[in-house]
Design a protein around this nucleic acid. Structure first.
Lengths: 355, 355
DNA sequence: GTGAAAGCGCTAACAA
DNA sequence: TTGTTAGCGCTTTCAC
């Protein structure tokens, strides 16, 4: 039911009687509509004088193209969809900003769809793409196990931003991705702690088998321990069930009530690390004297914790920009691409030597 | 130039030959297109049997309505625009989430446009609204001084979210707003500090004359001081020039190099308060022993600072939900509304008695 | 209760 | 270089 439309139109005192369309312009300067269309779309085969005339008319009549009509006629919208899973993670907001900015620069509209943590982003994406005839989709923070079937149902090209299809059966030629190497970076973070003499290192994550970043980063953590000859202590694997700070805080708090024989924490996200710092502080432990912390993300906020969070910073802006760039290229006919970016160690004050 | 559209369509191995449209459905079950349209739009005058037939056909054919065509025929999109000024403020992300959620529930698509701090959000909004034939606009974090002329150029109803038209010449009947009473809440925050014995209270803000929240909240700060008989010390007015944490940090740092005879800070935003806490800490001052801090916003993150930030929490979700609710009602023909919400004191550990 | 037909504003053949 | 025309998929009178 589109009841909304009923009396929504007449905004009192509308400046123009009716919005001008290309027919009005055509009539106004005595040319055909196709000529107007050509001018408006920068087609070459128009004489300079006609072009000028049309352009003048357009601005005189306050012409604004109707994108619905455009989209309908061209069977495509000038829009892409951005489907975000887990928008509560502050890390994403920087990426979203970059994506929005890049879209605007490329002349694309961005349609945002944020979905609940539990929901199926692929279904959401497919709905969006189909009904809005979107050009493509960027998925932010999704599952790593899309199937070919899901991908085909989408019907438009998509790029995974901040993650890839590690656990799925997608062909690399069927989708694009921009992300860091989760496992390698987690290995790196853990190793940094080990090099400081830490052995009882907890890992703070969503779930060891979330088919997503937690799972991958957990693997890197395990491998780093194993390479250093440190046995995995399952009691130090802190699963929170989601990526909220609240869950991270509670999990740490609960853990600290049971045992305190840890000397470091590797958190899979900055926001979780910040929550952990709070839990440690509330438990009377100080960072990094009693417990070191390292994370992966590099959100703005972690520059302002006390002490400053030591983290492997992902290039937020680049992640977003690359996602759009790749999508635009794919839309232009290029092959799908997979970009792997690296983090930068942003040294802070949360990592010290093991006591 | 819409070159993008060229070879974007044929996603290899498209599941269906071509997307089904209502004509296909009509043919499939031997009825007219208008009947199909009626069913799809829940119009009453259709026999139950036909309705069922059409619905079956629709799902059998994987029918997805083409919103461009709908919009064109109905001369309206099922979409509203959200124009955000200053998306770097984490406070907004919670509001945006709520708006997006509410839109989805109301069956509306949300088109997001984030604009640079300096840019003119009204111009951006007008462009969006006109070309996309949007139903309405929600402005998040904009200027308080829109003129009637600007509002008329928009052409669609709009609601100001988190702010209002305090300095403009808009008629209250011409727009809606959902916000807190900035001045009163700032008065409140400042008074809380005064009640703890503080007299040398700094205020941390964008600019005392930003025609926006800083200006309004500054007024509340001044009034609270004045009511308490405390003279305004202009040296304690810390203007940052924007709402970034970086600027807030630097301004505080610079201030602390010059003088330290303050006992409290009122920050107009949580994020700025967090940056201030860092600056104090880096200067060797502790909160709240050496300096108390209070802010307005209530972002998630400030629950996890050490100590927890004392803040007047705005109802983020409600702000967003109300904005959408009002817009929907206005679109349905209702009069414009102005909702004033109140903050909730979220006690933390950053306010103590003056030494 | 249902169908035929006329657009919505635009793009893109196809003619001229 | 330009104009004419036929749709794009849908909604909505207006007949039946």
């Amino acid at each position: 039911m589109r009841q909304l439309a009923t009396n929504a139109v007449s905004c009192k005192g509308d400046p123009e009687e009716r919005m001008a369309n290309i027919k009005d312009i055509a009539a106004y300067c005595g040319v055909g509509v196709s000529t107007v269309s050509r001018v408006l779309n920068n087609h070459p085969d128009v004489s300079a004088s006609t072009r000028a005339k049309v352009l003048d008319a357009a601005s005189a009549l306050h012409y604004v193209p109707n994108s619905s009509a455009r989209d309908l006629a061209g069977n495509q919208a000038d829009a892409i969809g951005l489907v975000v899973r887990g928008a509560e993670n502050p890390f994403f907001t920087g990426v979203i900003r970059a994506i929005e900015r890049s879209c605007a620069q490329a002349g694309l509209t961005m349609v945002l769809s944020q979905i609940r943590a539990g929901a199926d982003e692929m279904a959401a994406a497919a709905g969006l793409a189909l009904s809005k005839r979107l050009l493509g989709i960027i998925m932010l923070g999704g599952r790593y196990d899309y199937t070919r079937e899901e991908a085909l149902a989408l019907g438009v090209p998509f790029v995974c931003c901040t993650f890839t299809n590690h656990f799925g059966d997608l062909d690399r030629a069927e989708f694009s991705s921009v992300s860091i190497n989760d496992k390698a970076e987690a290995y790196c973070a853990t190793k940094l702690l080990i090099e400081q003499g830490h052995e009882r290192i907890a890992v703070l994550l969503d779930s060891v088998s979330d088919r997503s970043i937690s799972e991958r980063r957990y693997k890197g953590y395990c491998e780093a321990l194993s390479d250093a000859g440190i046995p995995l202590d399952e009691g130090l694997v802190l699963e929170t069930g989601d990526f909220t700070m609240e869950a991270a805080y509670r999990r740490c708090q609960q853990f600290l009530e049971e045992r305190r024989d840890l000397t470091a924490i590797f958190a899979v996200a900055d926001s979780m690390a910040i929550a952990a710092m709070k839990a440690l502080s509330d438990a009377g432990l100080s960072v990094p004297q009693d417990c070191s912390i390292i994370a992966i993300d590099g959100i703005d906020m972690s520059l302002y914790t006390v002490p400053t969070l030591t983290t492997l910073a992902q290039p937020q802006a680049t992640l977003g920009e690359e996602a759009v760039r790749i999508l635009v290229e794919v839309l232009g006919g290029a092959a799908h691409a997979h970009v792997r970016l690296e983090t930068t160690l942003r040294p802070g004050g949360t990592v010290g030597r093991a006591y």
